[in-house]
C-alpha cells in the first residue's frame, strides 16, 4: 500500500470572504514509501499547502490524508468507530471512554510531527538556540528522549547534513546562509522521521550549497529507507534526485508517475510553463540534428555517458 494517500483533498483559503481562494482542488494521490518523490509546480499551485497537510499543520477543507492507511486528522467519532469493536472499550464507562479517546487523539497528533518531519521553505528563520547543537536537539528533546539518545541523534543528523563538529558549539546566527539551512534541516532529520517532507529545500542557495543539501537528503533516505517528498521547481534537481515526480498546476495534479514517465511528456510540461531539464533539451536538439542519443536523459552524468557511447561507436566505424 502507498505510504501516504490523499483522498479527494481540497483546501480553501479564507472561505466565505471576498478573498476566498482554492489552493487544492479534489486531489487524489498515492505516494510510494521508501523512495524520493518530487513535486513540481508553479508558485500558487498549492504545493506548500499540500506539504503542511501531511503532518497536520493544515487541515483539508474536504477529504482525508492517510498515513499508513490511517486518517491523520481523525476526530472523536472516527476513533470511536475504530474502537467500538474492541473488547477493552466495552468495559469502559462513557466518561472514561471519552477521556481515553481524547488522550489517544492527542497522542496521535503529537506523534505525527515526529513521524512526518516537515522542513518548511527558508527554514533558517526557525533557528533560535544559543548553539547549533542545542538547536538541532530541540526536536529530539520535544520527543522526550534521554540526553544520550539526543546526543547520538544530533551527531548523526550533523553527519548527514555535513555540519562539522567545530560548528556545533557556535551560535546559529553566526553561520552562513547555506550552513544555517543545513542546521535547520538537521533539526528535522534528528527526529528520524519516517516521512521527510521538504519545501524548496535548496531555494536561494548556490550550486554547491544545493548539492550539499540534496546529497544529505539522499543519504538520509538511502540509510534509513524512509519516504522523502521534495517540493521544488528546479527540474534539474528533480531529475537528479527523485524516483517519482508529481506535477501540479492550478490546484490540481497534472501528472504523476516515475521520473521517466513524467519527463516523457515534455510538451505538456512546457505548455504549463514548467521547464524541462536543460540537458534534456540539449539532447533533444542534438537528436533533431541527427546525433543518435537516447530520449530519456535527464542529468548531465547520463548525458556524458550517452555521448561517450556515441563517440565510441563513431570511433569503431
Amino acid at each position: 500500500m502507498d505510504k501516504i494517500i490523499l483522498d479527494h483533498v481540497s483546501y480553501i483559503y479564507s472561505a466565505g470572504t471576498p478573498f476566498e481562494q482554492k489552493a487544492l482542488d479534489d486531489i487524489c494521490l498515492g505516494i510510494r514509501g521508501g523512495c524520493i518523490t518530487g513535486i513540481i509546480g508553479h508558485t500558487g499551485s498549492g504545493k506548500s499547502t499540500m506539504m503542511q497537510m501531511l503532518n497536520g499543520l493544515a487541515k483539508p477543507t474536504f477529504g482525508k490524508v492517510l498515513l499508513d492507511g490511517y486518517d491523520i486528522n481523525s476526530t472523536m467519532e472516527d476513533v470511536f468507530e475504530e474502537w467500538r469493536i474492541l473488547p477493552e472499550y466495552a468495559s469502559l464507562s462513557d466518561r472514561k471512554a471519552k477521556k481515553a479517546i481524547g488522550a489517544e487523539i492527542k497522542k496521535r497528533k503529537a506523534g505525527l510531527c515526529f513521524r512526518v518531519g516537515l522542513v518548511m521553505q527558508y527554514p533558517e528563520y526557525q533557528l533560535f538556540e544559543e548553539t547549533v547543537f542545542r538547536d538541532i536537539a530541540f526536536g529530539p528533546r520535544n520527543m522526550g528522549l534521554s540526553e544520550e539518545e539526543i546526543r547520538e541523534r544530533v551527531l548523526e543528523a550533523a553527519v548527514f547534513t555535513d555540519i562539522g563538529a567545530e560548528l556545533l558549539d557556535k551560535s546559529p546566527f553566526d553561520l552562513s546562509g547555506g550552513q544555517k539551512r543545513r542546521v535547520a534541516l538537521a533539526g528535522v532529520i534528528a527526529m528520524r522521521p519516517e516521512v521527510l517532507v521538504l519545501d524548496e529545500p535548496a531555494a536561494g542557495l548556490d550550486p554547491l550549497g544545493r548539492s550539499f543539501i540534496f546529497d544529505g537528503i539522499r543519504d538520509y533516505q538511502r540509510k534509513t529507507g524512509s519516504t522523502v517528498l521534495i517540493v521544488s521547481h528546479s527540474m534539474e534537481d528533480m531529475a537528479r534526485y527523485c524516483d517519482d515526480v508529481i506535477v501540479m498546476s492550478g490546484a490540481r495534479v497534472l501528472r504523476k508517475g516515475s521520473r521517466e514517465e513524467v519527463f516523457a511528456h515534455v510538451e505538456e510540461l512546457a505548455r504549463t510553463g514548467l521547464d524541462i531539464p536543460q540537458i534534456t533539451r540539449v539532447m533533444a536538439s542534438l537528436r533533431e540534428r541527427g546525433v543518435p542519443v537516447p530520449k530519456n536523459i535527464y542529468t548531465v552524468e547520463e548525458a556524458v555517458s550517452a555521448l561517450k557511447a556515441v563517440f565510441a561507436e563513431e570511433g569503431t566505424k
Partner: peptide, 16 residues
C-alpha cells in the same frame, strides 16, 4: 504571516 510561519515550523519540531 511570519509569526504563523515560525509557529508552524516549531510545531513541526514538536513544540507545544
Amino acid at each position: 504571516e511570519e509569526t504563523e510561519k515560525i509557529m508552524n515550523a516549531q510545531k513541526a519540531r514538536g513544540a507545544d
